[in-house]
Design a protein around this nucleic acid. Structure first.
Lengths: 285, 285
DNA sequence: TCATACACGAAAATCATTTTCTTAGCTACC
DNA sequence: GGTAGCTAAGAAAATGATTTTCGTGTATGA
C-alpha cells in the first residue's frame, strides 16, 4: 500500500520504451487516468491495451482496475497537502474559509514532519529540569509565548513570559545555570528576542529557539533549535499560519512534559482546574 | 463531488427494501465494496447485479465503477480526519506528534465545516462598521483575544483586549451603539466573559460570541454566535485543539475584513510593517 | 546468418456491467 | 371482485472493458 505514483516515477528509467510512454502519461495526468478506460489510456499513450495491462501487472497493482483504485486514493490524499493558497482581494467568504483551512492544515502537517524527535527530546529535557523557564517573543510570537507560559504555570512550573523587551532582558539577566530560556520568533531575526536569548545564554541558561526552518540568527544562537515550516514567499501575511504552527509545537512540548511525568502533573492540572471553579463558587455563582 | 457515503446514509429510509439492503452493506463495509465486483456485491446483499446497477444510477454515481471510485477517494480522506486521539501517559514522542497533528487538523476541518457563512458575514459586518471593538476572553481564550486584538490594531481598527475582568467590564461599560463586543470562551460559560458581554449588550453594542458548538450561555446572549467544533468528552485538556480552532476563526474573520477592503487595509498593513523596521534601523541595527 | 529472446499489437477469450425483457406483486379504478 | 396499470426486481441478453493468447517483427549474441 505504498506510493504507487512515486514508484512509477522512480522505476521509469528501467522501463521499456512503450512502458515509459505509459508511465509518463500516468505521472503527468494521474487524475485523468482515473476516469479513462484502458483502451483510451492506450490511445493517449500511443500503445495498445495489452501493453497497458501488462504494465499494471509489472507494478503488481492488481490489474488496471487496481491501478485506478490506488491512483484514486493517492490523489485524494494529495489535495489536502496541496500548495499553500494565497489570499487576495475579492475572495468570497467560502473561499477564504477553504483557503485558510488548507493553509493551516498544511502548516501543521509540514511542521510535524519537520520536527526532529532528538531535538524535541532535548528540549523536553531542559524544560523538565529547569529551575526557571523564561519565554521570549514579541507581537505575534508574544501571543504564543503567553500561551506556553500559561500552560507551564498550570502544571506548577516556574515560568515567565514578558512581551516588554526591557522586562525580557531584565528577566534573562537573572537567569543562571539550570534555567532555560525559550525564544520564539518566526523570522528568527527579531532583535529584542535575539538580545534576550543571547543574554540568557551568557548567564549559562539552556537555550531553545522556535523559528521558521532555515538558517537564522536566533536558531544559530540556541543550544536546541526547533523549527516550524516556512511558508512560500508572497504568502499574504504568513504570520497566521506560522502562529498556528508555533502553537502546534508548544502543544507537543507541553503534552510531552505532561505525559513524561503523568502522575506528577495531571493532578496539578486537575487541581488548578478545580481551584478556579471553587473560587468562582465562593463568589456565589 | 460531495459526500456519497453520507448521502447514502441519509437517503436510506426512502429507499426500496432491496436498495436498503445494498445501502446498508455499502455503508457498513465501504472498504470492502471498493474491492468487490458488482455481482459479488449483489450476492453479499442478497440482490441481483441489475439492482445494484440501478442503485448506482439513482445516486448519480456514474455507474458501479464511478461509485467505487468515489468510495475509494472518500475512504482515503477518512483516516486523516479520523477520531480525535486521546493523549495518555507513556506515549512516545513520535506518537504525541502524530496524535497532536491529527487532533489539530481535525479540529480545523471540523470548525471550517461548522462555520455558517451567514453568521460570518454578519460578524464581518459589525466588525467593519464598529467604532470601537472590545474583545473579551480569559486564560486560554485570552491568548486568542490578544491575537485578534493585535491583528485589528495592525489594520488601524480601534480595538482593546483585556484579560483582567475588571478592565473588561470597565471597557464594556463605555461602549455604545455602533460599537462591537467580541467574546471568546470555549465553554461559553466563563462568568467574567459573560458579564462583560452582557454589559456591552446593555450599552447597545453589537455582540459576537465564539464558543464551542452547542447551547451555552454566551452564545445565547450574543447577537451573532460563532462556533468552533466541540471535542469529544474525555479528551485530555481539550483547550489545545479548541484554541487552534478559535485562532482559525479569528484568521478567517481577519482575512475577511482585509479582503473586503483590500485597498484600504493592505497599505496599512505594509505601513505598520515598514514602521517597525524603520524604528529598528534608527536604533542602529 | 541463424537462433533466441523480447516487445508489442491484433484479436480472441474472458469477465464485468448495463440494458432489456419478463414476471410477480400491488394498487386503484371500474 | 376483476382488470388495467404500475413498480420492483431478477434472468438473460447485449454491450463493453480487460486480460490472455498468439503471431510478427526486431534486436542481440553466438
Amino acid at each position: 500500500m505504498s506510493d504507487l505514483l512515486r514508484s512509477i516515477r522512480e522505476q521509469m528509467p528501467e522501463l521499456n520504451p512503450k512502458e515509459q510512454t505509459i508511465a509518463a502519461f500516468i505521472t503527468e495526468h494521474p487524475q485523468l487516468v482515473v476516469r479513462l478506460g484502458i483502451t483510451e489510456l492506450a490511445d493517449q499513450s500511443q500503445t495498445s491495451a495489452a501493453t497497458v495491462s501488462r504494465f499494471c501487472k509489472n507494478f503488481h497493482a492488481g490489474g488496471f482496475a487496481g491501478l485506478k483504485l490506488q491512483l484514486a486514493t493517492e490523489l485524494a490524499l494529495q489535495p489536502a497537502a496541496d500548495s499553500y493558497q494565497d489570499i487576495v482581494a475579492g475572495n468570497t467568504l467560502e473561499s477564504i474559509v477553504t483557503a485558510m483551512e488548507a493553509n493551516h492544515i498544511r502548516s501543521i502537517s509540514d511542521t510535524s514532519r519537520l520536527l526532529d524527535p532528538k531535538q524535541l527530546a532535548r528540549a523536553l529535557d531542559v524544560l523538565r529540569n529547569a529551575g526557571q523557564i523564561d519565554i521570549y517573543g514579541v507581537a505575534t510570537s508574544g501571543v504564543v509565548a503567553q500561551d506556553f507560559y500559561q500552560k507551564l504555570v498550570r502544571i506548577g512550573r516556574r515560568a515567565t513570559a514578558f512581551s516588554d523587551p526591557h522586562m525580557q532582558i531584565t528577566s534573562a539577566s537573572i537567569l543562571g545555570e539550570g534555567d532555560t530560556a525559550f525564544a520564539i520568533s518566526y523570522s528568527g531575526e527579531t532583535p529584542e528576542t535575539i538580545d534576550a536569548l543571547r543574554c540568557a545564554k551568557e548567564r549559562g541558561a539552556a537555550t531553545v529557539s522556535l523559528t521558521k526552518y532555515g538558517p537564522n540568527t536566533l536558531s544559530s544562537l540556541a543550544d536546541i533549535p526547533l523549527y516550524t515550516s516556512s511558508l512560500e514567499e508572497g504568502m499574504r501575511r504568513g504570520d497566521m499560519a506560522s502562529r498556528i504552527a508555533q502553537l502546534h509545537v508548544v502543544d507537543i512540548l507541553f503534552t510531552g512534559l505532561v505525559t513524561e511525568s503523568f502522575d506528577e502533573y495531571v493532578p496539578k492540572l486537575e487541581q488548578s482546574f478545580q481551584m478556579v471553579k471553587k473560587y468562582r463558587k465562593e463568589k456565589g455563582r
